[in-house]
Amino acid sequence: MMTEARKTIAPMSECIGLKAAAEYAQVDERTMRRWHKNHGLGFKRIGGPNARLMFSITELNAYLAGDGEALMHLRNGDYEHEALAVYRRITGIVL
């Protein structure tokens, strides 16, 4: 279970909603919610109790690859770190 607050810094242009993220990762939406709760993936957009759960494609690719180093850089706000470049290239994200 996640014990500390984590944040992901990524441009909103590369973020997708819960349903799209589940389809992208080829898992159930419940799995995405569990990954959010237990592993700190994704974030809730501002909007009160009905806020949408969103996921960074770069973060999702790094998580699916099991790349803890890339996730650490992303969560520390170092979005341009070379460890993340491979995951941005996968989806064609250009800085």
Rank of each mutant, 00 (worst) to 15 (best):
G48Y: 06
L84S: 03
E82V: 12
D78N: 12
M1H: 08
A20N: 14
F43A: 14
V94P: 00
E23P: 01
D28S: 12
A62N: 04
N38P: 00
L60G: 01
D67V: 05
E14V: 12
G42M: 06
L41V: 00
I57L: 12
G66I: 12
D28L: 03
I90E: 14
L18H: 02
G42T: 01
W35H: 09
A83F: 02
M1R: 10
A20M: 10
L95A: 11
A21H: 09
L18M: 14
M12T: 09
V86A: 12
A85I: 04
I46A: 12
A25Q: 05
A62I: 08
P49N: 10
A22M: 05
A62R: 10
Q26D: 15
L74V: 03
R75M: 06
I57W: 00
T8N: 07
T8L: 05
G47D: 05
I57S: 06
N61P: 00
C15N: 06
M72E: 14
L60W: 02
Y87Q: 07
E4N: 05
G66W: 09
N50Q: 11
R52T: 04
V94H: 10
G48Q: 01
K37M: 08
A20F: 02
A70T: 05
G47V: 05
I93V: 15
D28H: 14
A85S: 09
E29P: 07
N50Y: 11
K37G: 08
D78L: 06
L95T: 11
K37P: 00
L41S: 02
M72Y: 09
R45M: 14
K7R: 12
K44I: 08
E59A: 10
A65F: 04
Y24M: 13
V86I: 15
R45T: 09
V27W: 01
A51H: 06
M32C: 14
I9W: 13
A62H: 11
F43C: 11
G42E: 03
A65Y: 07
Q26M: 10
M1Q: 04
N61S: 05
A5P: 03
A20R: 13
L71Q: 04
K7Y: 13
I57G: 00
I57R: 15
P11Q: 03
A5E: 15
G68L: 07
H36W: 02
I16E: 08
V94D: 13
L60A: 01
A25I: 11
T58M: 07
R6M: 13
L74W: 05
I16G: 09
T3C: 04
Y79F: 14
S56C: 09
R45S: 08
N50R: 15
T3G: 08
R89W: 03
W35Y: 15
G77W: 08
A70P: 06
W35P: 01
M54F: 03
K37I: 05
R34I: 07
I90T: 09
E69C: 03
R75L: 10
I93Q: 13
R89Q: 13
G42L: 02
A65S: 14
M32H: 01
I57N: 00
R75T: 07
L41R: 07
A21K: 06
Y63C: 01
A83C: 11
D28T: 13
I16Q: 11
V94S: 13
